[in-house]
Every structure is written in C-alpha cells, then in structure tokens.
Design a protein around this nucleic acid. Structure first.
Lengths: 211, 211
DNA sequence: ACCTGAACACCGTTCAAGT
DNA sequence: ACCTGAACACCGTTCAAGT
C-alpha cells in the first residue's frame, strides 16, 4: 500500500505504516528501531530524520490506531448508549492491532499524542448535560478502565497463543464472549454511576428518592 | 536495614529491598539488573541465582508494594465505604514508591505476582452481597481504574519535577488535591454503579425501565 | 549456597558526512 | 530532503567455573 518497497527514499507516513505492520505482526517488544529500519531497507539512524525519537513514533502509531476506530458522532441515541458505543468502538480500535492498548496507554500516560479518545468520550458524556469537569473526569475514568481491560485482554491472548501456561494451572482459555461481557460490565458500572449522579442532581441535593 | 552493605553474600530479600530502594530513588527506567548488581557490589550474573529473570523480580516488588498498603479488614463499615477505603489504601500504597503503579500494572498485566490487590477489592465488593463473578468483575474494573489513574498521576509528577514542559504549554502544575478529587470521582462512579446495580436487583428485574 | 568472568546478542541515539 | 557509516553508551541473560 504505502510500502514504497524499493524506491529508496521514504516519507514519514511510510515509516509509520511499516511500524504499524511490524507491531501487528510481531508485537510491541519486537518493534525496535533497528528492526523497523531493516524493514525499510535503511540504516537505523535514518529513522531519526522522520521522528526525533522512538516515543514520538509510538505516539504517532497510537493516534492512528485510535483514529481508525472513529465512527460517526451518532447524535441520535440517548447519551448513556452513546457513551457505551464510544467505549466499545475504542475497544475495537485497540483490538485491531496487536498490543494496541499498551501502545495507546503508554502514550497517553506520557502525555503524548492527540488525546482523541479522551475527547470523544468526554463529548459523549457532555451530551448528557454534565459540566465540563464532570465530563472530563468521567471520560478519564472510562479511558483508564478501557485501556487497562484491553491491555490485559491482549496480554492474555498472546500467552494463550504461545501456550505459556504453568503446569497445573489449567487457566481459563480466555473465552472471547466472556471478555466482552466483563468489558460491558465495567462500562455499565461507570455509565451507571454517571446516570445515578445525574438522577441525584436532577432531583436536588436534599430530596432522596420518593419514599 | 536489610542492606548487608559489605558482608559479601546476599539473600533474596536483600536483593528485593535494594531494588525497591533504587526504584524509589531513581525510577523504573533506572532500575536495571546491572545497576542493581552494582548497588549490591556484585556481578550482574549473580542476580540470576536469586531471581530467574527481571520480570520475576519486578513481580516480587509489586507484591511488596501492594502488601505494604494492607490495613485491617474493617468489617464494621458499610460495603460502599469499605470499597472506597480499599481503593484509597491501594492508591496510597502505589504512591508510596516512585513508579509504583507502573510496576504493579505491568506485573498484573503479565499475570504475575499474587493478585492481592484484586482479591482485597473483590472481598470488599462481596461483602455487599454480590455473587463471586460480579464481585470479581467490579474489583477488576476498580483495579484497572486505580492503576491507570495512579500511573498517570506518577508520570505527571516526574514531568513536573524535571520541568519538561513544552514551550507555550503552561500546563496545570498538578494540584495534589485535584488529583485526589479526580480519583475519588472515578471510584464513586464505579461504586455508585455497583450500588445502583444492587438496588435494581433488589427491586426486581422488571420494575425499573432502563431507558 | 552464592558468586565471578567472560561472553552473546542485542538496544536507542548521535553526528559528521554524503547525495 | 533523505540517508550512510561508524560509533557511544548501554541492555538482559547464559554458563562454565570458582569457593
């Protein structure tokens, strides 16, 4: 596609896309600058013309992974459903690349990359009528949960595929539907908590439920 | 304390405690096997008599960090308060060591270490009368949030201390009370979601509409 | 039981220089 | 504009051998 397999010179986009292919095929630990350079038929030092360092390259990959999970804003549905949909879309985007969650999580932790995922979640929350700070905090909580959950999920997928199970540890073989259910449960907890908060503020700070 | 500064031979405990000191003083990136060996006045290869590899050593550190945050079971308080208290205790334990959250998160992601944190949270949830699967999933969701939040928090602390702020980016200087409030908000969302779930199942599956 | 010495097979990054 | 060549300063891990 953007490979530029033999045409000597490369663009920043070439480098990023080749890196994404290595990431997806061999995983994050095997995505080294030297391996990437070799895949591009170039010396390792050549990469530093396109990116100042490896972290910046990884941030670019994180942005691309997240951006590929972006659908239409879906302004029609109720806000809790929209928030759930954004969470699922983010999970799908992360699952689309091997170690996708870890790449995005580490980039996010370092404060690099556009924070597109965070902004999408915050916008969905804000559509529920919450103020900016509440929306941001809810988005952050959701984002942390999603990144943590999918990181864990992808780690388990690798272990299972290599078959690195300790003797005696039968170890649940990671049912995909179980994983999705556990994910949905976590999202429901957070969205439910936000709904509850909305109910409370709507019914006033002093009036408990009508009993 | 356990330093064994000059007495030639070391125990597994020495190695772990020295590693914790390096972690706390210089951070995770500087905790290398070679640096640890130097601190113990020993060749790097000597470490491999005590631990089979670096990941196993890090798992040991993670277990110690989490264990140090363990207080009394507090069976007196209501379960939502107990769950909140466990979450805060876990955060405090992680904050007690530099990069503590990242060490625990990566160990947890790899499925290494005793999962003491997860078990404590699950026990607190179960004390609310939820079944084992629900308690586990709630604990996992909480754990992911806590690890993600504190990782982020600690990353920012380092950035701020080194003063690596991009020009023009005034960047909020990370108010500690803000951080604590954002943390409490996320915990409240999850605990609140769980309370809501309890209310629903108590009032029957059909009584409440979910629009 | 605990460690040394020496090696293996790697890393990310810099920088002068080339075209 | 984009890359080479060569180096710097590191990594984790293995393994025979020592005491």
């Amino acid at each position: 596609m953007t490979g530029n397999e033999s045409g000597r010179r490369h663009t920043r986009d070439d480098v990023a896309e080749t890196a994404l292919r290595i990431l997806d095929d061999y995983g994050l630990p095997d995505l080294t600058m030297r391996r990437l350079a070799a895949a591009l038929d170039v010396q390792p030092s050549a990469l530093y013309w396109h990116f100042p360092n490896k972290q910046t390259l990884l941030a670019e990959l994180a942005d691309r992974i997240v951006a590929r999970g972006a659908g239409a804003p879906t302004d029609t549905t109720a806000w809790p459903d929209r928030l759930r949909a954004e969470s699922v879309a983010l999970r799908d985007a992360l699952l689309a690349y091997r170690d996708g969650a870890e790449v995005v999580a580490s980039t996010y932790a370092l404060g690099l990359g556009d924070s597109a995922a965070q902004r999408r979640l915050a916008a969905a929350a804000a559509s529920g009528g919450f103020d900016a700070e509440t929306s941001d905090r809810a988005a952050t909580a959701l984002l942390h949960f999603v990144l943590g959950h999918v990181s864990h999920e992808q780690q388990r997928m690798q272990f299972d595929s290599i078959g690195v199970l300790a003797t005696g540890e039968a170890a649940d073989p990671l049912d995909a539907s179980d994983s999705a259910a556990a994910f949905a449960f976590g999202v429901d907890l957070l969205v439910g908590g936000l709904e509850r908060l909305g109910d409370e503020s709507r019914s006033g700070p002093l009036s408990r439920s009508r009993t």
